[in-house]
Computed example of a mutant assay.
Amino acid sequence: MPADLSSQLLNLACGLFLLTAVGVLWLRQVSALITLLAVQGLALTAIAVLLAAQHRSPETIAVAVGVGVLKAGIIPWMLRRVLARVPDARETRPLVNVSASLLAAAGLTLLAYAAARPLVALAPSASAGATPVGFAVVLIGFLLAATRQRAISQIIGLLLVDNGIAAVAFLATGGVPLVVELGVSADLALAVLVLQILTNRLHDTFGPTDLDELRELHD
């Protein structure tokens, strides 16, 4: 694949990766958040595949396949199983409204690009130049987890953080060892499985899983 075409496709995949994170802040319907998370998993897979093609690394191709299966398939499927217990769930009372969240996302993206400038200067390549996108997604994930009320929305925020960290690892190093990425992703899949079990128990016992309502039960 020509280098120019590969760089353009990499930038397109990184743009989609960041856009899905911003879209998660814009939407309140939890089912839509899960769909965007799956799309982001596909974008992360595309990043890994393009880097594997550039470096001609079979190991990175194996990582890309594992990332695609786990982050775009298994984990969103498990989240939808959790959501099946509370259909039509949506965020009705986020701590920060949509407009303020989008402005915060813009500020965090600028902060990520400023913070990553020394790293990009060390290796002025197309992949290193896109590294700030991963940092921005990490910060946006933390913002989502801190400002949403539903437990499932908060776990999606943490999954965004993991996706951002994986993107930084891919872009900064040209790929991470297969066992490392699959190990981290397997831990996340286990965490989502535990969330599914806990959500089912909470829903059967108390009804909705909105954190404010659960705090009222505690009080």
Rank of each mutant, 00 (worst) to 15 (best):
A105H: 02
I155P: 00
R150F: 15
A136Y: 04
Y113C: 13
Q149W: 04
F135G: 06
A128K: 01
A126R: 09
V168H: 01
A151T: 13
F135T: 04
I156E: 03
G134H: 03
T131G: 05
G134N: 05
G107L: 13
I140E: 05
V161I: 13
A106P: 00
S125M: 07
L143H: 10
P132S: 07
L122F: 13
A121Y: 12
L95V: 10
L103A: 11
L159N: 08
A123C: 12
T147K: 00
Q154E: 10
S127Q: 11
A100L: 15
I152K: 05
A151N: 12
P118F: 08
A123I: 12
F142V: 14
N97K: 10
V133A: 14
I165D: 03
S125N: 14
L122H: 13
P94R: 05
A116E: 10
A104K: 06
E91D: 06
D162N: 14
E91K: 00
I156D: 01
L102H: 03
L103D: 09
S101N: 09
L143Y: 08
A128C: 09
A145S: 14
D88T: 08
A145C: 11
L110I: 13
R93V: 13
L95P: 01
V137R: 00
T147R: 02
R148D: 05
S153T: 09
D88S: 12
